[in-house]
Design a protein around this nucleic acid. Structure first.
Lengths: 233, 233
DNA sequence: TGTACATCAGTGAACGCGCGTTCACTGATGTAC
DNA sequence: TGTACATCAGTGAACGCGCGTTCACTGATGTAC
């Protein structure tokens, strides 16, 4: 018995008029996968049951489980990127960029626990389309972060080759923090402080380390030969 | 047809005289799980087939899949801890501690690809005995690292509460590096440099950040009231 | 040293069940004229 | 505006298969006396 209510004008995603069943299947997949050990072990029958559909409807919308998961990840990535860009812009002052952005991220993770959990797990899964989609998303997050924080003047003047590995660490750690936050959301304030400390430690460390290796252009007037000795090993 | 060769006097693990079939099952499980999306999706029949045993032999040695995985993780953790402790002691000089330890870890990861891969995946799996075993192992690694690096004088004089989050980041990143190394082992030298840069950035950052927040005891003679302003936000 | 017995590792048949996938079908929606 | 037809979302029966688990069994190893 096909249901004939029109789907709401704008669904959760940007895709125009996504079929109702498709949306139901994607949501059900995320819900189930977050409870299981991995997304691939959700059975098609179980999925259809969770979505309230016939077990064959899956084949109408997806060619494989991987295709389903890929679409879930790309949807999730779009929302995350947009939200982060917005959060970076709305931070009232430079000092509040980190708390604002991390705060928004923690809240977003809590509001989208299931898909966050799934993404966290699949990230280290076997190489394939899903892992690739997650890695592409993380790379985009890093690109956005670099460009937008630089635009706000929130990053020290360091070469991109120095900044990128640091941003990668920050992204990794914030994701891990989100994962912990989902399981224990009562320490939100402490997490914001921890994130700020991590951000500062890395940035101050990178700036100081650069100053130590090329001090000629900076505050000291030690001859460069002497200070270069510090760089050995 | 029971095989009657005696098992080698000392098996891969410390457990005295582990039954041959048990060893075969544990090795097979690691091999299979590393190929699949997650350890839990290895079927008992598949496992027995891979181990070359009857599908019922599993029940002779393990009460559940979780029990099997727990034993695998604890075995792995023991080897990793011992090797790391050894590597820290054998580093010829202070400057070479990081390259020695990270180098040993990368080689170990490569030599134990499968179990490394499985541990990496299960770490963010659903809460339960396996994840707990992995978290306990990581905590022990952090404890060892703190105690042994401090004993060698390889850490700056910072409070434990400052050092521990930094060690956690380093452990996370080295694990991630091992994961990448398994898939692209040709960049070993670069990885050692990257690890050293990360270690230095974090340590220098932590020391500098502390110096900035409590400068009274240090090089400047600014009145503390003034410098404390730097700590706000 | 020999014997009797318990324990242990491994075997093979049998069971009922949920699974993925196929097929032919229904009814609603969209489009060409 | 109406009609005819194609496309699309969803249905339900049927299939063969691999699965986890149980059971009663075999033969080797270890131990008490």
């Amino acid at each position: 018995m096909p249901v004939s209510d029109r789907p709401p004008a704008a669904a959760k995603t940007t895709t125009p008029r996504m079929a109702q069943g498709k949306r139901l299947l994607m949501d059900a997949a995320v819900r189930l996968a977050s409870r299981l050990s991995c997304a691939q072990s959700v059975s098609l029958r179980e999925l259809a049951r969770e979505a309230g559909l016939n077990h064959n409807t899956f084949y109408r919308h997806f060619s494989s489980q991987d295709a389903l998961l890929e679409e879930i990840v790309s949807d999730f990535g779009q929302q995350l990127r947009q939200g982060l860009t917005q959060a970076r812009l709305t931070a009232p002052s430079l000092m509040e960029v980190t708390p604002t952005v991390v705060g928004w991220t923690l809240d977003f993770a809590l509001a989208h626990q299931d898909v966050f959990t799934v993404a966290m797990r699949e990230r280290f899964g076997p190489p394939g389309p899903i892992r690739h989609a997650i890695e592409a998303m993380l790379q985009q997050l890093q690109d956005d972060m670099l460009a937008e924080l630089q635009a706000r003047g929130a990053l020290p003047a360091l070469p991109e080759a120095t900044l990128r590995p640091i941003l990668a660490i920050i992204i990794d750690q914030i994701f891990k923090m989100c994962h912990e936050h989902i399981e224990a959301p009562e320490h939100r304030a402490q997490r914001l402080l921890d994130a700020k400390a991590m951000f500062e430690t890395l940035m101050i460390g990178a700036v100081t380390r650069q100053a130590m290796s090329t001090p000629a252009a900076n505050q000291t007037d030690m001859p460069p030969e002497k200070t270069q000795a510090k760089r050995t090993q």
